[in-house]
Simulated assay, not measured.
Amino acid sequence: DMIIPKEFLKTINRSGLGFAAFAELRYENAIDVATIGAEVAIPNKDFILNKEGYDGGKTEILIVGDNFGCGSSREHAPWSIGDMGIKCIISTSFADIFYNNCFNNGMLPLTLPRDQVEVLIEDSSVPGTEFTVDLVNQKVIRANGESFSFEIDAFKKNCLVNGLDQIGLTMEKLDEISSFETERSAKFPWLDGAAMRVPDVVKMYPDAQFWSQEPVSA
């Protein structure tokens, strides 16, 4: 996995993985970094994100090649890229699982036609070049004012614009959830688990006769 090597996949914490992103490309001694830590890292001077103008968290938009994220199905991949300070990834295409994991972790992966991606790559070859990703209006705006439109699923867009993850989406429905649980408890009290508000006798079907409350002997 070129986004984050397997040695870094043992943690379940999403923060603190920025140093591990692209480790095999980013460091001369990736194995030492994986076993000891970032403090022993020897940067590969030829790697773009180690070059002046792109390093030190200055890069927020990553422009990448085709089918980006292929083989990086674990959430550690977007965790590590996001922890570097990347907020948006632009490509011609993405691997499906990686693509959805980006949205689930607050990062925008957007696709553009190849010719437009190549224009942006050419723009970004000059350190310090800035362009804007306008999610609300679904446009990538170059420094010269030219813009490229992109498509995005309306639901995913709403989640990013409003900062909603899966927990946040659930919290938006608290009133409906509470109402449902109240109604369910009234109709089916025996489903309340530990509360065990089970009626003394329960008919198995509408015309069933209740079992005798007296012990049954054979």
Rank of each mutant, 00 (worst) to 15 (best):
M2R: 13
L9D: 06
K10F: 10
N13S: 11
N13Q: 12
L17P: 06
G18W: 01
F19T: 00
R26S: 06
A34T: 11
V40G: 02
P43N: 12
F47W: 11
Y54S: 10
T59I: 01
E60Y: 01
N67M: 07
S72M: 08
S73L: 09
S73D: 10
R74T: 05
H76Q: 12
A77H: 05
S80F: 02
I81H: 05
G82L: 00
M84L: 15
G85R: 11
I89G: 06
I90R: 07
T92D: 02
F94P: 06
F98S: 07
F98D: 07
Y99L: 15
F103E: 02
F103A: 01
N105K: 01
M107P: 05
M107C: 06
T111P: 00
L120Q: 04
E122Q: 13
E122I: 09
D123R: 03
P127G: 09
G128M: 08
G128L: 09
G128A: 09
T129W: 02
E130F: 04
L135P: 04
I141L: 10
N144I: 05
S149W: 03
F150P: 09
L160S: 05
V161K: 02
V161S: 01
N162T: 12
D165S: 02
Q166G: 01
M171S: 11
L174A: 14
L174H: 08
D175W: 02
E183F: 04
R184W: 06
L191Y: 11
G193V: 12
A195D: 10
M196H: 10
P199C: 04
K203V: 05
P206S: 04
P206G: 02
D207F: 09
Q209E: 15
E214I: 03
E214Y: 13
